[in-house]
Amino acid sequence: MSELGLASRREADEWIARGWVRVDGAVVSELGARVSPEQQITVDPAARAFQAQLVTVLLNKPIGYVSGQAEDGYEPAVTLVTPQNHWNGDPTGLRFKREHLRNLAPAGRLDIDSVGLLVLTQDGRIAKRLIGHDSEIEKEYLVRVQYGRPGPVRDVFPEADLGTLNHGLWLDGKPLLPAKVWWQNEDQLRFVLREGKKRQIRRMCEAVGLKVVGLKRVRIGRVMLGDLPPGQWRYLRGDETF
């Protein structure tokens, strides 16, 4: 069911437990039951209605919050999802409900010292799309940097090293996928990546002698951070897809 995009594994388990899944017309009661490619899986409309109520939240994460579980005394970003922080420019018209926090989890990381777009979702299908092992959805960042020579960084940074940032670096013993990296202004780069290794951009910059002094994620797939203020959040619109 997960491979077909019908549900996340957790959702599939819950639907099976509720008797909402049939194979060739027969209700499935065993978790992990095997299904051959020739067999037909059907899902009760109640499951679709349940799935339609799942929410996805877009948060403009500020510095000082961790993406996932609390650590070293720092609070997780999900604690910012409160009625008080709900952006009054949210175009969805949805109103906050406490059940929207149930199983709301980050779909990807954003370092404690980085800011910008963080996705939290109840929908396992979206999580898989964004952080599954085969996901190649683009993520775009604005990265302010310093270099060890006087003058505007763009003017003194070697062009060859900019080429290396685009393609040619290795991390953790493996080559990185080609990236898109170009100058936004004299001390700021724009990165577009299709993978998300831990602290990847900071480590890429360190490899060519750059120090990151500010990092902001502004886009995931086709979803933009836009005018969402720091520390505030909104719901993903029904017509928005990553």
Score class of each variant (00 low, 15 high):
Pro158Asn: 05
Tyr147Asn: 11
Phe96Ser: 04
Gln122Asn: 07
Phe96Trp: 08
Pro152Gly: 04
Gln84Trp: 07
Glu140Tyr: 09
Asn185Glu: 15
Arg194Gln: 14
Cys205Trp: 02
Lys216Arg: 15
Ser135His: 03
Lys216His: 15
Glu99Tyr: 09
Asn85Lys: 05
Gly89Pro: 08
Glu186Gly: 10
Pro175Tyr: 10
Gly25Ala: 09
Ser114Asn: 06
Pro229Glu: 11
Glu38Cys: 01
Thr82Val: 12
Leu58Glu: 03
Asp72Ser: 15
Val57Ile: 10
Leu118Pro: 03
Arg48His: 15
Arg219Cys: 10
Tyr147Pro: 13
Gln122Arg: 07
Gly93His: 08
Arg237Val: 07
Leu169Arg: 03
Lys61Gln: 09
Gly25Leu: 03
Asp161Arg: 14
Glu206Phe: 11
Val212Ala: 02
Val43Asn: 01
Pro175Asn: 07
Pro158Phe: 06
Ile137Asn: 01
Gly32Cys: 08
Trp20Thr: 01
Arg129Glu: 15
Asn166Arg: 15
Arg222Cys: 08
Gly209Thr: 13
Glu195Ala: 10
Val28Arg: 00
Asp72Arg: 15
Asp123His: 03
Ser8Arg: 11
Glu240Cys: 13
Ser135Phe: 09
Ala47Tyr: 04
Arg109Thr: 11
Val28Tyr: 00
Val78Ala: 03
Arg219Val: 12
Asp172Phe: 05
Gly196Lys: 01
Gly231Ile: 02
Gln188Pro: 08
Val208Gln: 06
Gly196Ala: 03
Leu225Gly: 11
Tyr65Ala: 09
Ile220His: 00
Gln84Lys: 11
Arg222Trp: 10
Trp20Met: 02
Lys174Ala: 09
Ser135Ile: 06
Gly226Asn: 13
Asn88Ile: 10
Val192Gly: 11
Val208Ile: 04
Asn60Gly: 12
Val57Thr: 13
Leu101Phe: 06
Asp134Arg: 07
Arg22Leu: 04
Arg144Asp: 11
Arg34Phe: 01
Arg219Gly: 08
Val27Phe: 08
Arg149Tyr: 13
Tyr74Ser: 14
Val78Gly: 04
Glu30Phe: 04
Tyr235Gly: 02
Ala26Met: 08
Asp187Ala: 04
Leu193Ala: 01
Leu118Cys: 05
Gly209Leu: 02
Asp134His: 12
Val35Leu: 00
Asp113Gly: 11
Trp20Asn: 03
Glu136Ser: 02
Leu165Cys: 11
Ala107His: 04
Ala179Met: 04
Leu171Glu: 09
Val35Glu: 01
Tyr235Gln: 06
Glu206Asn: 13
Pro76Asn: 03
Val115Trp: 03
Gly151Gln: 04
Ala160Met: 07
Leu193Gln: 00
Thr241Cys: 14
Gly132Lys: 05
Val218Tyr: 02
Asp113Tyr: 11
Leu210Ser: 10
Val213Lys: 11
Ser67Tyr: 10
Leu110Pro: 05
Gly19His: 03
Leu118Met: 01
Glu186Met: 12
Arg98Val: 14
Ser36Arg: 00
Asp113Phe: 12
Arg219Lys: 12
Ala77Tyr: 04
Lys128Thr: 14
Pro106Tyr: 06
Pro91Phe: 13
Trp183Val: 02
Gly132Pro: 10
Ser36Tyr: 00
Phe96Lys: 07
Ala17Asn: 13
Thr79Ile: 11
His86Phe: 15
Trp170Gln: 10
Thr79His: 05
